[in-house]
């Protein structure tokens, strides 16, 4: 794979039991780019992130990260690889029994032998980058949703990862926090020279900050392109998604038998 490619996903398939979630997904992500993955709820976006992180194993195809096929690594190599990945979980997933400071310091303490004074400096730097240096002594329960998301962001960049994965970072945020998170994602990616994957429903916010977009539907890539291509597309699915139309290729009605036969009109008329 070319040197600027960080992640190559090839024909990736995955199923939970007999239910297949992904059916042959292929994508490439270049270093230093912000890539968005969009799709309806339950379309397998989080699952795709899990596959990249190697917490689940594909039934076919592979994910190649930095020239390693993720699911073929042994446990130690996989854990080593995961240190190059940061992940921001949907609701932050901060450790509720640790303070903001200790949350950000967590990986440094677990994975490095840095002296406590240096950890302190690093943690404060990371917190400063998300604007929350002054909140380092608070507990997660004392933070607002937007602040918790920012702390989680600081925690995910603690070890200067090569890749940061954001799982629906905008969900449940007010408009101000939402723009703050959006611009932080872009700024941190550029400043740290990392690569970012943003899983999101928030079309308008994410089109402002990303370099490339993939749409997942029915377990395959339904469409892809740059934000400009995507917002001008005439593909019905993408058009429906981007503009939030109620009916279209994604139907309003859950599959059902014909309406008139459900109401037993024939029987009554007969």
């Amino acid at each position: 794979m070319p040197p600027e490619t960080l992640i190559e996903v090839k024909n990736l398939s995955f199923s939970y039991g007999s239910r297949s979630i992904l059916k042959g997904v292929s994508m490439t992500m270049s270093r230093g780019k912000v890539v968005a993955i969009m799709g309806g709820s339950g379309s397998g976006k989080t699952t795709l992130l899990r596959l990249i992180g190697g917490t689940v194993t594909p039934s076919a195809g592979y994910v190649k990260f930095d020239n390693h096929v993720v699911h073929e690594l042994n446990r130690d190599a996989l854990f080593k690889l995961r240190r190059k990945m940061g992940m921001l979980f949907q609701f932050g997933a901060l450790f509720t029994d640790l303070s903001v400071f200790d949350n950000v310091a967590f990986q440094m303490r677990e994975h490095t032998d840095l002296p406590e004074s240096m950890i302190r400096d690093l943690v404060l730097m990371k917190l400063n980058a998300v604007g929350l240096r002054g909140a380092h002594h608070l507990m997660p329960g004392e933070l607002s949703g937007g602040m918790a998301r920012r702390v989680a962001l600081a925690r995910s960049i603690a070890l200067d990862p090569t890749l940061i994965m954001y799982d629906e970072p905008f969900t449940g945020l007010d408009p101000i926090s939402l723009s703050v998170i959006g611009s932080l994602i872009r700024r941190l990616t550029d400043a740290l020279g990392t690569t970012a994957i943003v899983v999101t429903h928030d079309v308008q916010e994410s089109l402002k900050i990303v370099d490339y977009v993939y749409f997942i539907a029915d377990g395959v890539i339904a469409a892809e392109g740059t934000p400009k291509e995507v917002s001008q597309t005439v593909k019905p699915f993408v058009h429906q998604f981007v503009h939030g139309e109620i009916d279209g290729p994604v139907p309003f009605h859950y599959p059902a038998v014909a309406y008139h036969s459900d109401l037993q009109l024939e029987d009554r008329l007969a």
Partner: peptide
């Protein structure tokens, strides 16, 4: 309750993604 809640709020998954084994930690 504590471990269950940590699981429900994805804290255990997050730990796994940080290359820390939640069973050990």
């Amino acid at each position: 309750a504590e471990i269950g809640l940590m699981k429900a709020t994805e804290q255990l998954s997050a730990m796994g993604m940080m290359a820390v084994d939640p069973v050990a930690r």
